[in-house]
């Protein structure tokens, strides 16, 4: 598993989605330094989520006879339903706050895409 590559791509994707949503509401040029600064906390969040929730599934399941596609096919549906529920719940309890929408939407799309990148990575 190429974790550094996946983390970097996921971090950029998460930042792009997050700032696209924030920018759709209100964007000023003063915010540009924050965009670059935000890459640090976004990377930390992405790393925690990917290393804590996606990688263990691949590590545990790949020790069996499963290949990447089989792991994806078996575990991804439940993972995505669970993360979608959590993200939707987060958005609803935040009373549709734009920052929370941006955070949870980017988290949901990034984790899903991260699964796709891990699965495409190598074919046993």
């Amino acid at each position: 598993m190429n974790i550094p590559e996946n983390l970097s791509k996921s971090c950029l994707l998460a930042a792009l989605i997050f700032w696209l949503i924030i920018g759709s509401d209100d964007f000023e040029s003063d915010m540009i330094p924050f965009i670059f600064l935000s890459l640090i906390p976004i990377f930390v969040c992405v790393m925690i989520v990917i290393l804590g929730t996606i990688c263990p599934i691949f590590w545990i399941a790949s020790s069996t006879t499963f290949n990447n596609k089989q792991i994806f096919k078996t575990y991804f549906p439940y993972y995505t339903i669970l993360t979608f529920t959590i993200c939707l719940f987060g958005i609803i309890i935040s009373n549709f706050d734009i920052y929370m929408i941006a955070f949870f939407t980017s988290a949901y799309i990034t984790t899903n895409q991260s699964w796709v990148w891990f699965t495409k990575e190598k074919h046993k």
Binding site: K73, F76, T80, I81, F84, W115
Partner: peptide, 19 residues
Amino acid sequence: WLNGTYTTIASFFHRNFQV
């Protein structure tokens, strides 16, 4: 319900790997 939920929220990602 399970298939409906999965299709609605993540069919796009799944179709990368139509096994």
